[in-house]
Structure formats: C-alpha cells, structure tokens
Design a protein around this nucleic acid. Structure first.
Lengths: 214, 214
DNA sequence: CCTACCGATCGGTAGG
DNA sequence: CCTACCGATCGGTAGG
C-alpha cells in the first residue's frame, strides 16, 4: 500500500483536516500530544492544565493541538481510552503467563501488574482515567465502562475461586470494590523515589486480602 | 457579652472588612458558603466550580463571597480544615464509645464511622479534601497533614493490636495505607440511593481485612 | 501545523 | 453584602 499516493480525505470540514484514531499515518505527533497531555493532566488535573502547556511540551504553537483533537476534552478522552486499552492488553498477557497456576499466584500477578499500570514510570494514563472521569461526557464514560468491564472480567474468576476456597472474606462484590480501591488509592501516596518496591506493595496487598504471606 | 455594642474591627484593609475564623459573629453566612462550596466542589471539582455558582447557591451576588474569603482557594481550604476537624472529633467520640471492647470491635467502629464521614448525607467536606488537595498550597497542606496525623493516630493502636494478634497481615504501614485506600475509594462508586447500607459496607471491609465475619 | 486573532468567562476589586 | 466593573486567561477558530 503506497501511502504517498493515497487520496485526500473525503471531506475537509471548514478547510481544517483532523486526524481520527484510524488514519494515524503520522500519528507520532498525535501520540506525543497524548503522552504529554497525560503527564500534565495527572500532575495538575484536567481543568488546571492549559492546552497551551500541552502544545509547548511537544514544541507546537498554542492552536496546533486542535489540528489533532477537536476539543481539549477529546484529548482527555483519548488519554483514557488509549490507557485503558493498553491496560487490558497488558493484564491479559500477564495473566496468560501464569495460567494453570493456583488462584493465589494469579491474584498476586494481577495485583503486581495493576500496580505497574498505576505507578510504573511513564504510566500516567490510568491515573488520569481514575481521577478525571468527571470531565468526560456520559457517552464517553459508557465507552470506558465497557473497557473497564473487560479489565474486571480478568479478575472475576480468580477472585471467585479464592472466595469459594475461603481465602477471601466478605461479600464478593464489595470485596472486589474494596480491593480495587486499596490498589487505586496508591496513586495518592506512592512515591517512586523513596517508597517500597512494587513487588513489596503487591506482597502487602496480597497478605492483607488473603492472609497469605507468600 | 453585648454583641451590639462591640467595637468595630481594628483595621479595615482597603476599606473591605473580612471575617477570620475566630470572629465568627455572624458566621452563619460564612458557614453557608462553606457548605455550598463543599457540595459544588465535590460534584464538579474545585477548578470547574465558579465562585458565582457558590454565591448563587446561598443567594448572594457574584462578588460577595470575597467579603468572607480572600480567594477561592481560601474557601477550599476552609472546607477541608473544617471537615477534618469535625472528622477527628466524631471519630474520637465513636472510639470512646467502644473503649475497652476488643480491637476487632474497635476497628469495626472506626471503619463504620469513616464510611459515615465519607458517604453520609451532607458530608461533602472530606471527599473534597481527599480529591482536591492538589489545589491548595504546601503550607495549607502541612496544616491538614497535622490534622490527618491526629486522625490516623486514632487507628494506629487498634491496627497494631490486630496485627500483633495475627488478625491483620502484611507490613503494618502498607496495610494501613491500603486499608484507607479501600475505604476512601468508596467515594467513587458508592451510591446512597441503591447501594448497600453503610453497615453492610463496614462488615465487608472488616471481613476482607481481618477474615472476620462478625 | 503556524499566524493572528477573538469571544466568553472568571476570579477578584473599588467604593459604598 | 451589593453595584459595577476590569484584566487576564483560555479554549478554540479562520485561513493559509
């Protein structure tokens, strides 16, 4: 497929083209915007972040991000959707790697990978999704809810197995919500520079929830 | 004390008096502002809330909140400080009521009261503190940290006792952080209208953390 | 993707 | 606490 001779986009609304996620021919600039936006949204919050700052962070002029995204909010949503898709894929892979192992080991893997997505270097996408969902539309929220459902589905069999085996106590649905809370809140207090390792975190969480010390 | 003949405030900086927390002679308007601000800050976030909306919610004109608070940020901080002071006082009382009872019962009480402060009707102060602390100054944050230390101090002996008794697993400091996370995150998902009762929540949390089913 | 720009909003203020 | 107001900012746009 020769991309140089590809026909121009069918319609150029008001003479200003705008890339969609699909036609990511030179999507590197778009990706740079998403990455920079994620970092700033996480650090300062969505409302307090100026699109000018995002532009400057990637060496663009103030109006140029709107060549790639219709609105600031669309950029926020792109961060969230992109982050969630990656998180599901990564978690799926991590879980595949421990298939066949006992539920306790699988839960440990899920927790470890979850901390990675939340606290690992450069992983700003999911924290933004967790803490800025107020700023997106109900329609966008619904799209994310579907991805979040996929993510949760990876945990459910493992949690159910542990619950049935008596290693996880309390009503299962509430236990799940409380567990995610315990993990997600780490975004608020974890300090990569001086805190415990993500492995130590995972150990502590597993111990707390299941009484296990392995 | 005759408040009608009280002397005028010593200095009126630039002819515009402003009440401090101390001289709350007619602090009811001030309190109304704090309450309304708390509700709006919680619902929309600090940055997305207009001071005009807060004013309107208490029947004031757009500029009038600045008679009571120097800045929008000062109003935010007042919400947080007020909320934290109340939370400490309430939790202290709740704990006194179960003094002498076993640690498990005390933890259940602490958790139950914590959910009340987070999710009870009209309790918007602490959620705002938890989710908007990015917007205050380091100095203000330090003041809050002291109050949060007081709050935490109520939990520490109880958690330590359970940990030593083998009812709480994992490194104690991390366990504490994870527990607070599990509880605090409920602000994100709990729905007063259709969710479980706060008692059911407390039961589930206690069971999850300690394996207890009472 | 840049230049040049604008309308609207919003925190905050002077003076009473 | 109101009236009347303002400076600055900021998301977004037309046209190339």
């Amino acid at each position: 497929m020769d991309m140089m001779t590809a026909p121009a986009p069918a319609k150029r609304p008001r003479g200003r083209p705008r890339k969609t996620a699909e036609e990511a021919s030179d999507g590197n600039r778009r990706d740079e915007l998403i990455r920079s936006a994620a970092r700033l949204f996480r650090r300062r919050g969505f409302e307090a972040t100026r699109t000018r700052d995002i532009a400057e962070a990637v060496g663009m002029r103030s109006g140029s991000p709107f060549y790639h995204f219709e609105t600031k909010q669309a950029l926020l949503f792109a961060v969230m959707e992109e982050g969630m898709k990656r998180a599901v894929a990564r978690q799926q892979q991590a879980l595949d790697a421990v298939a066949g192992q006992p539920p306790l080991a699988q839960l440990r893997q899920l927790i470890r990978q979850h901390f990675e997505v939340l606290l690992g270097p450069g992983n700003d996408f999911i924290p933004v999704m967790l803490y800025e969902s107020r700023a997106i539309t109900p329609r966008q929220r619904a799209t994310l809810a579907r991805l979040q459902g996929d993510y949760e589905a990876l945990w459910l069999p493992v949690l159910a197995a542990l619950h049935q085996a008596g290693r996880l106590h309390g009503e299962l649905k509430l236990a799940r919500l409380l567990i995610f809370g315990a993990l997600n809140w780490s975004v608020q207090w974890y300090d990569r520079r001086k805190g415990a390792s993500l492995d130590a975190l995972a150990d502590a969480a597993l111990a707390l929830f299941t009484g296990s010390s392995e």
